[in-house]
Every structure is written in structure tokens, then in C-alpha cells.
Simulated assay, not measured.
Amino acid sequence: MKIDKPAPGAPCWVELASSDPAASKAFYTELFGWRAEVDPRPEAGGYTTLLLGEDAVAGLSPQYREGQPTAWSVSFATADADATAAAVRAAGGSLLMEPTEVLDIGRFAVAADPSGAAFSIWQARLFNGVALLNEPGSLGWVELATRDTHGAKEFYSRVFGWSVTVGEMYTQWGLAGRDFGGMMDMADQFPADVPPYWMPYFAVADVDSTAERSVGLGASVTLPPTDVPDGPRLAVLHDPHGARFGIHVADQAS
């Protein structure tokens, strides 16, 4: 990830909604060396910030609706959540949650692109988002998996002004020449009932040992450690409750 701090249009936060927050906290703190701080305010609903040292790197929340899967979500920064929400609608997307205030820390909305892939938008006030990027144990990349790559290029470029770099095997998203994510064509690689989704990759010092350690903690490996041509070594995992996430070697995502 060439983005080194949250910026308008760039990834600024990742959050896990878990069916068992205590178990998820135990898994990720052990895997990445994170520590957890629970917001004590009753109105925060038990929201937990996950930190690496003193740096916020991710969020953890209970599930807020029945039937909600345990899954990671990705948020993108905006200077104006309401204007971005309007841009989502104008580009053919939908709002799953209208812009709303989050205590005194910011304003956010939950949206979906035309294919149904969900993401959040975040207008910071007291909280900007991740305080560390692409260091071992922090967010290093975000990836969209979709069956409509053409539509996604049009939608996200229109809403966020992203640049699109199309390679032979992979498409990358960026802002002003600084790439931060990519897009994978689901095509025939996924069962028809798997919906489009956004997924975070966390940077690690060693992909192989981290993948092995995750299995020992109850995770499963979807994509074993792999060297990507002209890219980093990476792996894709499911945590013990089914949430999908990736890992890659720090400082090698391009």
C-alpha cells in the first residue's frame, strides 16, 4: 500500500463484526500481537478498538442484526459523508445505512456498489481511523472480489475518483498514483451463492509462519502462501468464525 495515512477516498478503517467478540479478540490479539480497548460508554455498545502498541489498527463489534455473518468490513475516508452517500446513489449504488453520527468521533454510512459489495464511508471528527499502515500487524491492502469488474471500475472511479490500473492478471485502485487496493474477478472461481465482498489484507513479517500460526489458533487456509508475479507473497484465511482476511509481506504490496 502506497497510502501511508488516511486520505479522502482511501481506506481508513477495517472492522470485524463478530458473533463471538471475546473469541475473536482472543484470536486476533494472539495472531497479530494486538491489544484491545473496550469503549466504556454505554452508548458505544461494547465497541472495541484493536491496537498495535498505541496505534489503532482495527475495530471489533458485536453483530447488530440477526443473521449477520461474522465478517470484516472496509471503510473509506471522505470529507463529507452526505455528499459521498449521494454520489453512491447517483452512480447506481445503494445505502444500507444512511449517514449518521457516531458519538463525537465522526459520521458514517454503509453503502453497497451496484453488484452488492458492501463498504462504509467515514467522515472523521475526533477519530481519523487507522494510525498505522503497511507495518507488520497493520492494514496493508484492500481487495474487492466481484463478478462485474467493468461496472466496479466505473462506480468507484465516479464515487471516489480512484485511478484504475489494469494489468494482465489484476486491477489496482489508487489515488494520485498511490495504489492502496485491487480487484479480483470472481468469475468461475467462486460458488454462485458467494456474494461480492471487500476484504482487508494485513501486513506481516512472514506469511508462512503467520498462516501456520493462524491454523493452530483455529483458522483455515483458503489460499496457501503464494508468491504473486510482480507482487508480494500472500495468503488468504478464514478466522475461526468464518471471517475472510488476507495477509501479505509488509512493504511489498504494489
Rank of each mutant, 00 (worst) to 15 (best):
V221P: 06
A145Y: 14
A250V: 11
G246L: 04
G53F: 04
F127G: 00
A79Y: 00
L132A: 12
I105P: 01
T222M: 15
A44W: 01
S254V: 13
G151A: 14
A205G: 15
M169Q: 15
D179M: 10
S209Y: 04
S120W: 03
P196I: 07
H238Y: 02
R107K: 14
T78W: 01
G167A: 08
A250M: 11
D193C: 01
Y47N: 01
V215L: 04
G45L: 11
Y156G: 02
F202D: 10
A253I: 10
G242Q: 12
V207G: 05
G106L: 00
E43H: 03
M184P: 00
K25S: 14
L223E: 10
S138P: 05
A118L: 03
F155D: 10
D39L: 11
S73I: 11
M199G: 01
S115F: 08
G167H: 12
P40F: 06
F190K: 09
L31W: 08
R107M: 04
D239Q: 08
A81F: 00
T210N: 00
T146K: 12
Q189S: 15
V88H: 08
R125E: 14
G231D: 13
G45T: 10
D113Q: 06
F108R: 12
E98K: 10
W173Q: 06
V142Y: 05
L139C: 06
N128A: 13
D208V: 04
V164N: 12
E15N: 11
V130Q: 13
S19A: 14
A7H: 01
A26D: 14
L16W: 07
M184Q: 12
G177D: 07
I247L: 08
M183T: 13
G92W: 12
A111N: 07
E30W: 03
G167L: 09
T222E: 14
T222D: 13
G137L: 05
P200D: 11
R244T: 15
V74M: 07
W72S: 01
T100V: 11
W34G: 11
D239S: 05
P21C: 04
V110I: 15
F119W: 04
K5I: 00
A56S: 14
A145W: 08
L132F: 02
E43G: 02
A219Q: 09
P136H: 05
L96P: 02
V130I: 13
D206T: 02
E101V: 06
A205Q: 11
V207H: 07
D113I: 04
C12F: 01
T226V: 09
R213S: 08
G46H: 09
G140I: 07
E212W: 03
T165M: 12
L103Y: 03
P240Q: 04
R89M: 09
A109G: 05
P196K: 10
K5D: 00
D20Q: 07
C12V: 06
F127A: 09
L126R: 15
L175C: 02
F119Y: 12
S24V: 03
G151V: 08
G216Q: 05
P69N: 03
A131Q: 15
T149V: 15
L175E: 01
A176E: 12
A77G: 01
